[in-house]
């Protein structure tokens, strides 16, 4: 628990350092801002959610970055070819991720992944809008799910 809070404080102080463009003469403000951010984060995230595995973060970021590039290139291509290249559909998929942060991350990340847009999230499933249902949507969603599972670590 203490480790989580220490990491959080370090993160906020680091953000402050970047925002202040590396100047250190305003450090009392940095202390105040970090304290305020800690207060807000405990109010919003209490009890502390299951933390992500820091070791899994670089891998997830690479996966995310690569797929958001693919998504952007794909949609740019479709935009230049016009609506005849589209075959949109609404589809329902089951989610295997546990409720909470993992699911929210997934449904939001889906808006930036190739061909998919999260439309709704309910108890058991996920509703997606896809630009072209001939694409291997389910495989993409499962790959994202696997990446998020690795990020959050195995469930106890």
């Amino acid at each position: 628990m203490i480790r989580i809070f220490a990491l959080r404080a370090l993160l906020f102080a680091g953000l402050w350092w970047i925002l202040a463009e590396g100047r250190t003469d305003g450090w009392p403000l940095c202390v105040v801002a970090t304290a305020a951010a800690m207060w807000a984060s405990t109010r919003l995230w209490f009890p502390a959610p299951k933390p992500i595995r820091l070791a899994g973060l670089p891998g997830f970021l690479c996966y995310f970055l690569w797929n958001s590039i693919r998504g952007g290139v794909q949609v740019a291509h479709m935009a230049l070819r016009g609506r005849t290249s589209l075959q949109p559909a609404l589809i329902e998929l089951a989610v295997t991720l546990p409720p909470g942060g993992a699911r929210v991350l997934m449904v939001n990340a889906l808006s930036l992944m190739p061909g998919t847009l999260g439309v709704d999230l309910h108890e058991t499933g996920l509703r997606l809008h896809v630009l072209d249902d001939r694409l291997p949507i389910e495989a993409e969603v499962r790959a994202l799910e696997a990446a998020i599972t690795t990020l959050f670590g195995k469930q106890p």
Binding site: S68, I69, G71, G72, V73, Q74, V75, A76, M78, A79, R83, L86, P88, S111, L112, P114, G115, L117, V119, H129, L131
Partner: peptide
Amino acid sequence: PDVYSRLHALAKADNL
């Protein structure tokens, strides 16, 4: 043609 596919275009292409 519709708001859903426009969302795809804006969210993905503009962010990239």
